[in-house]
């Protein structure tokens, strides 16, 4: 059972390595969106420092939404998804494998890039540390919740935009606790409360999201 999980993760990572450009486009999108705000709002450091957590988090949210398109679409097109549905392993485990690989390819780079962007907004060291921790907890939850949306909108025309409309409202708690933790840390209130909530959401979505996504896949592939 666990061996198939690893096989799916390994397969998707190999596929991602062979198409490295996909991974970088998501990362560039994240960097560009974050860098746009100072151009829109002005170079004033005080305001930038104030909005930094929100901006980085919203950009991470949008980048994750953008990345969802690829999660099941290619497998659906070439029939690999059907074979996964017919595999004698629990589908939710295979979905978890795919989401894990998807996060490693699209979510983790965001986490690693975030400190660089934080410096761009002159975030304090504490702020940067908490930003990375919250993104590390938050981006997997975004991928998991997003997987449900990706599975529901499989093969639909205009699916990319529809996924965001379905998934963004569900990711609002992640955004609130993620950005809130960073802001609370900067303002000295301490972000532990927020981070524990974020961890709770991650655990909840780790358990429930694959089940819902698997059910959605069965409905969509029919």
């Amino acid at each position: 059972m666990f061996e198939t999980f690893l096989a799916i993760v390994r397969r998707d990572l190999i596929l991602a390595m062979r198409r490295r450009s996909d991974m970088l486009t998501i990362l560039f999108f994240f960097v560009i969106v974050v860098s746009l705000f100072p151009l829109g709002i002005g170079p004033e450091m005080n305001t930038l420092r104030l909005i930094a957590p929100g901006v980085v988090w919203v950009a991470a949210l949008l980048a994750s939404m953008l990345a969802l398109e690829r999660l099941f679409a290619i497998d659906y097109a070439d029939g690999a998804l059907e074979q996964m549905l017919l595999a004698p392993q629990p589908l939710s485990l295979l979905v978890l494998g795919k989401v894990a690989a998807h996060w490693l390819v699209t979510g983790l780079p965001l986490v690693l890039m975030a400190p660089v962007l934080g410096i761009q907004y002159d975030l304090s060291l504490d702020g940067l540390r908490v930003l990375v921790i919250t993104l590390l907890l938050g981006t997997p939850a975004l991928s998991l919740i997003g997987a449900i949306g990706a599975a529901l909108t499989l093969g639909l025309r205009g699916g990319g935009v529809l996924v965001s409309l379905l998934v963004l409202p569900l990711t609002i708690p992640v955004l609130i606790f993620g950005a809130g933790a960073v802001e609370a840390t900067i303002s000295g209130l301490g972000g532990e409360g927020h981070m524990s909530m974020l961890a709770a959401i991650l655990v909840l979505s780790l358990f429930f999201a694959p089940l819902a996504a698997a059910a959605a896949l069965r409905v969509s592939v029919e």
């Binding site: 190999i14 029939g79 059907e82």
Partner: peptide
């Protein structure tokens, strides 16, 4: 138990082009 006994090959091969 049932899907363990079945193999289905449809129009789409289920083959990944990059592999």
């Amino acid at each position: 138990e049932y899907t363990r006994e079945v193999v289905y090959i449809g129009h789409k091969n289920g083959i990944k082009d990059d592999l």
